[in-house]
Amino acid sequence: MGNNLLSGKRGIIFGALNDMSIAWKVAERAVEEGAIITLSNTALAVRMGTVAELGKNLNAEIIPADATKVEDLEMVFAQSQDILGGKIDFVLHSIGMSPNVRKKRAYDDLDYNLLQSTLDISAISFHKMMQVAKKMDAINEWGSIVALSYVAAQRTLFGYNDMADAKAMLESIARSFGYIYGREKNVRVNTISQSPTLTTAGSGIKGFDGLMDFADRMAPLGNATADECANYCIVMFSDLTRKVTMQNLYHDGGFASMGMSLKAMNQYNKSFENEFKDENGHIIYG
């Protein structure tokens, strides 16, 4: 049951692929809270995913577009304003992909052409999105733009690879563009650093199951789910957060502030229960 937090607002949700997507959950919650929206993803993602089902359920038109192409983004913002009947009030950037991760390239053996693709898709697209919107004057005053990030922008986490570089750039873009957009148009720009979440993209990261389990043991509140992230996004889109901008907001159950938790320490100690030493004092693991 919604609380009409987004009543009368218009939004664009980039990145919904299937019902595992955070963007999918955000789209559902936005409409539940009274917004009208359009959905956008690449033409390939629209064909391969189930976003058509989401569009039908939410009465939301789908605009296939490549977010790395300025002309495609211009088309999304122009069509969205026509479809929704006015300027946009909120935008979600939920776009991320690393060809190096998909090809299992180690961080010290990156393909640099693929690295450029990672940065363009996962971070530079965010800058392009806002630059297009600003030049078109497509966002209403006090509008809200949110991109999804991850703590690997600040911490080294095994297996996250060059996506960590992309998230660091994403957060920097939010600060730099957020200052300009806020100063000139009263539009706020933030990133949400979400817990590791089982999505189609996330499942491709090496050791992702272990990463999720570790984060859940470390975070005092446990991992934040996709549904909970959607709730947070709704608050950031709403008028309740009008003066919040240029922030990277951790939504991870407290993980980002932890060093060692009791659960993680217990698991660590348990790993030594079957430890034995040979006659020379060398550790033998059972």
Rank of each mutant, 00 (worst) to 15 (best):
A23H: 02
G259P: 01
F272P: 07
F255M: 06
M48W: 09
G207L: 14
F276L: 14
E74Q: 15
T42R: 06
A123P: 01
D109A: 11
S193N: 13
H93D: 02
E184L: 15
A43V: 06
T68R: 14
M246A: 05
N3G: 06
N186D: 13
V46A: 03
F272D: 10
A35Y: 04
W24S: 01
M218F: 07
E53I: 08
M129T: 00
L73E: 01
G202R: 12
Q131S: 08
I37C: 03
L73G: 01
V132N: 02
R102D: 10
Q81Y: 11
N113K: 13
T156E: 05
L44W: 10
K134C: 02
N274S: 15
G178M: 00
G207K: 13
N18F: 10
N223A: 11
T191R: 09
E279S: 15
C233R: 04
S80F: 04
F237M: 09
R188N: 04
A201S: 12
L198M: 13
R105V: 04
G259N: 13
T68G: 07
T241Y: 10
G202Q: 05
L249W: 09
T68A: 02
N113D: 12
S193A: 09
G96H: 02
I63S: 03
L170Y: 05
M130D: 00
E74M: 04
G86E: 06
A35R: 06
N280K: 15
M236D: 01
V132C: 04
F158S: 09
N274L: 15
I95R: 02
S80M: 03
G207W: 09
L39P: 00
S172R: 15
R47H: 14
E74N: 12
F255A: 05
M236C: 11
K103L: 11
K270P: 01
I62T: 07
E33P: 06
G281H: 12
N41Y: 03
D209L: 14
I13V: 14
I22L: 11
Q194V: 15
A230P: 03
P220V: 08
A27C: 12
I234L: 11
Y112L: 10
K277V: 15
T199L: 10
G178C: 07
Q131E: 05
H251E: 03
L58T: 02
E184Q: 14
A27E: 00
K128I: 00
I36S: 14
A201K: 02
N41P: 04
S125Q: 02
G159E: 03
Q131W: 13
V51R: 01
A230W: 08
D239L: 09
L92P: 00
G207Q: 08
